[in-house]
Structures are given as C-alpha cells and as structure tokens.
Deep mutational scan, measured.
Amino acid sequence: TDVTFHVNGRNLHLKGADEELLRRIEELIRRGADIEELEKAVKEWEK
C-alpha cells in the first residue's frame, strides 16, 4: 500500500506499507507524535 500522511505541514510518504505499519503510524499520530517519531517508526519497520 502506498499512502501519504500529512503531519504538521510535512508529508510522510510510505511505499509498500503493510497493515501493521499503518496501524502503528495512526496510533502515533493519535498520541500527537511529531514527524521525526513517525520517520523513526518507519525506519524500524523497514529493517
């Protein structure tokens, strides 16, 4: 799945995201995470 999140005026584009990653990103956004936290979560998922 390709999806782009718009967070605090910045874009986080995910290519090939699975349901697990999407749920994790949505949860972080609900908690008020900043873009750096979201990018870190994506990097951890990519490993």
Rank of each mutant, 00 (worst) to 15 (best):
G16F: 06
E20N: 14
R23E: 05
K47G: 12
H13F: 11
E19I: 13
I35E: 01
K43E: 11
F5R: 05
R10T: 12
E39V: 12
R30E: 07
H6W: 12
G32I: 02
E37Y: 08
D2G: 05
G9N: 03
R30L: 09
L28M: 14
E46L: 11
L28S: 04
L38E: 00
A17D: 04
L28Y: 09
A33G: 04
I25G: 00
G16C: 07
D2A: 03
L21E: 01
K43P: 02
F5G: 05
E37W: 06
E46F: 13
I25K: 00
V7C: 09
R24V: 07
T4I: 15
I35T: 02
E39H: 07
V7D: 03
T4H: 11
D34H: 07
N11G: 04
G32D: 03
D34C: 06
E37L: 09
K43A: 13
R10E: 12
V3C: 14
R24Y: 11
V7H: 04
I29Y: 09
E19H: 12
R10F: 14
D2N: 06
F5T: 04
E19S: 13
L22V: 14
E36K: 05
L38H: 00
N8W: 02
L12V: 02
E36G: 07
E26L: 15
E20K: 14
K15N: 05
L21D: 01
T1Y: 15
D2L: 07
F5I: 15
W45Q: 04
N8T: 02
L12G: 00
D34L: 07
D34M: 08
L38A: 02
K47D: 10
V3W: 11
V42S: 03
E26A: 14
D18K: 06
R30A: 10
G32T: 02
E20Y: 15
D34Y: 07
E36M: 06
K47Y: 12
D34K: 07
A17S: 04
R24G: 05
I35P: 01
E44M: 12
E46Y: 15
K47M: 13
L14M: 04
V42I: 10
E39T: 07
F5E: 05
V3T: 04
I29S: 02
E46G: 13
H6S: 08
T4M: 07
V3R: 10
H6C: 15
E46A: 14
E19V: 13
G9H: 02
K40E: 13
V42E: 01
A17M: 03
R24P: 00
N11L: 15
A33L: 09
R30C: 09
E27D: 11
D2Q: 04
A17Y: 06
A33M: 10
R23H: 08
I29V: 06
R31C: 09
N11K: 14
E39M: 10
K47V: 11
I35D: 02
E44T: 11
K47I: 12
I35Y: 15
R24D: 05
F5Y: 10
N11I: 15
K15S: 06
L12E: 00
E46M: 13
K43H: 11
F5H: 08
E44F: 12
E36D: 11
H13A: 05
R10P: 01
E27I: 12
V7P: 03
L38T: 01
L22K: 05
E37D: 11
R30D: 07
K40P: 01
V7N: 02
T1H: 13
E19N: 12
L28A: 06
T4S: 09
L21A: 03
F5Q: 04
L12I: 07
E44Q: 11
A33V: 07
E19K: 13
R24S: 08
K15T: 07
W45S: 06
I35G: 01
E27V: 13
L28H: 03
K40Q: 12
E46P: 12
E36N: 08
E37T: 10
W45N: 05
R30Q: 09
N8K: 06
E27K: 12
G32C: 03
V3E: 04
I25F: 04
H6D: 10
T4V: 13
